[in-house]
């Protein structure tokens, strides 16, 4: 049978999914064991025991200086910044994209502007954000907002343009004015697209968050990673990276579930 016609069955599929992860873990722990056997003080590839100890120290033991559980505090601060950034960007991006994609009079001034703005590398203007908004929470949230809003807005503008003209005409023959047309036809069509777009920019949002935290912060997942780098504390960095990956994956999964539950019509309408 040709390779292109061969499909894995359920069990086989699960195995194939898990295989690369297992191989990766195996390679890591073999490497780690070898290095530690040579030099028990090696820091580069910590063993599972060392990482568990580090997590236990940060997540389940009070910090002696502040009395906080650092791991959870870092997580909470980071998620707060990320959530605010994503929320504001989603709202602004939706409004801009809907306006530019639906109203020709607003598309003319907005579309080229958004295209140019989305070319500005957000990290390059991070110093400006620190100067303008100070070193507090605002500048970190703003970096995320500035980084992903143009992408969201441009995507949604495109999606709004893809709504068949027939539907917009039909709504007008049903008595819609511009505002109710946007509210009842364009907006519902864009909301599921917004969730998809958010899933796609999740990676960039995390990137901007970690970057902002690394440079100026007193807590947060990115801050901790860059702080312990000075001590080559790989036993902290690796679990943190895994934790961030897990959080990002869960957010992606969550957005997908919300889209599926809130917009059951969407999958069928694509066909």
């Amino acid at each position: 049978m040709r390779l292109i016609n061969r499909h894995p069955d359920r069990a086989g599929r699960l195995m194939l999914v898990l295989l690369p992860f297992a191989l990766l873990l195996f390679a890591y722990f073999v490497g780690s064991a070898n290095r530690l056997a040579e030099n028990a003080n090696d820091k580069l590839l910590p063993s599972a025991t060392q990482m568990v100890a580090a997590v236990d120290r940060l997540a389940f033991t009070e910090d002696k200086r502040s009395g906080n559980y650092l791991f959870w505090q870092d997580t909470l601060s980071s998620l707060k910044r990320l959530g605010m950034g994503l929320g504001i960007a989603a709202l602004v991006g939706l409004c801009l994209g809907m306006a530019a994609g639906t109203l020709p009079l607003l598309s003319a001034p907005l579309s080229p502007l958004l295209t140019v703005l989305s070319m500005v590398p957000p990290l390059a203007i991070l110093p400006i954000l620190f100067i303008v908004f100070g070193l507090g929470e605002l500048s970190k949230v703003m970096l995320i907002v500035i980084g992903i809003t143009p992408v969201l807005a441009r995507d949604l503008e495109q999606r709004a343009r893809e709504i068949p003209t027939e539907l917009l005409i039909k709504a007008q023959t049903l008595g819609a004015n511009t505002w109710t047309l946007m509210l009842r036809v364009v907006l519902p069509h864009l909301l599921p697209r917004l969730l998809i777009a958010l899933r796609l920019v999740l990676g960039s949002a995390w990137l901007f968050l970690i970057a902002a935290e690394a440079i100026a912060s007193t807590d947060g997942l990115g801050y901790r990673i860059f702080l312990v780098r000075r001590y080559l504390a790989m036993d902290v960095i690796v679990p943190y990276v895994i934790w961030i990956t897990l959080l990002a994956w869960l957010m992606d999964l969550g957005l997908r579930q919300v889209a599926r539950l809130a917009f059951p019509w969407y999958e069928g309408a694509k066909a």
Partner: peptide, 25 residues
């Protein structure tokens, strides 16, 4: 010709809604 995001019933009712409610539709 029809709105994919509305049920059959709402696809027809939306006409009455849009006319009677110019603010919220």
């Amino acid at each position: 010709s029809v709105f994919a995001h509305l049920s059959v019933l709402d696809n027809v009712a939306i006409g009455l809604e849009l006319v009677q409610s110019p603010l919220l539709g």
